[in-house]
Design a protein around this nucleic acid. Structure first.
Lengths: 159, 159
DNA sequence: GCTGAGACCGAATTTTATTCGGTATGTGTT
DNA sequence: AACACATACCGAATAAAATTCGGTCTCAGC
């Protein structure tokens, strides 16, 4: 699928204003509402647009602690990777997880109600591969820039 | 503002299905559409619900590289922190940025069209506080778990 | 020049959002 | 206990939006 200027504008608009009405979106990209809706449907079906999320202001909702975690495996076998990934997946408190190249193997972001609960999760992750995993915890002090979408203008040439 | 069971359910539902219709939402939480809309409005006005985002499947849209970056400042003065924060803020490619406690001062997530461009950004971040900042880059190999909202059930007691 | 596919538009219809008046509930006051 | 106020709810009426569908235009391939 090749993306023309209009579809790119749909993507970048929806990315940041997911609840915009189809009519307003159609206006902005210069299409009739029916054509615009058609495009959005196709982008969804093609899997370019995924789920729609609301940003929550967590501090206003409840107390919580947020921790960024670096992980190194001593045994870098495929099995060890898979085992650790599954452990990360299974914890709802692990809200993000990446495998990376470089001095670490994983980065996680963990959100827990308090430090005690965070510590339990930390222990459980250590227990998955006893003695074979190295974890460093970094408590988030401030969110300088929360994720609000990708910089499509910079990623796609000739916008 | 104290959140009752219904408002919590509204939050957790909207968080993951931001484009749900108000009628469907009202059904699920057991309110009439008008009352439900009222609640949502109040949650928005109170700032508990922020912007609505669409997740994009970036690999299907364009080529890109994603890098997680750890940063340590040699000079940990308030000014140095502020300077580096502003630099991070000003780059659209820096899609996330946190200050943390522990062995690092910042974590960043950077998305660029290619390595060459990433390298430029990296250099620019280094130049902000010459010789005073230590940056390590970790190219993302796989996204094990993308962010899809907070685990409200685990964060709020008595759900 | 003909044909089929794809994309667009606009009008008609269905669904949803939004507004508004009226009612119940609960609190604090007299 | 009776009152007055605030709050939250519901349902009906209205306004707006989404969705469907038939018809037109354009373009590539034949």
């Amino acid at each position: 699928m090749q993306l023309d200027k209009i579809s790119r504008k749909i993507l970048s608009t929806l990315q940041q204003e997911a609840r915009i009405t189809n009519q307003e979106l159609a206006d902005r990209v210069g299409l009739s509402p029916s054509s615009c809706l058609n495009r959005v449907r196709k982008l969804e079906e093609a899997g370019l647009i995924g789920p729609y999320l609301s940003t929550l202001n967590l501090p206003k909702i409840c107390r919580s602690v947020e921790v960024i975690v670096t992980v190194s495996l001593k045994d870098q076998s495929t099995d060890a990777f898979r085992t650790f990934q599954q452990a990360a997946q299974s914890h709802p408190e692990v809200v993000e997880c990446y495998t990376v190249s470089g001095t670490f193997d994983f980065f996680l972001r963990i959100v827990a109600p308090d430090m005690m609960r965070y510590n339990e999760i930390n222990d459980q992750l250590l227990d998955v591969l006893p003695g074979m995993v190295n974890i460093s915890s970094h408590v988030v002090l401030t969110t300088v820039k929360p994720f609000r979408g990708y910089p499509l203008d910079e990623l796609i040439d000739g916008e």
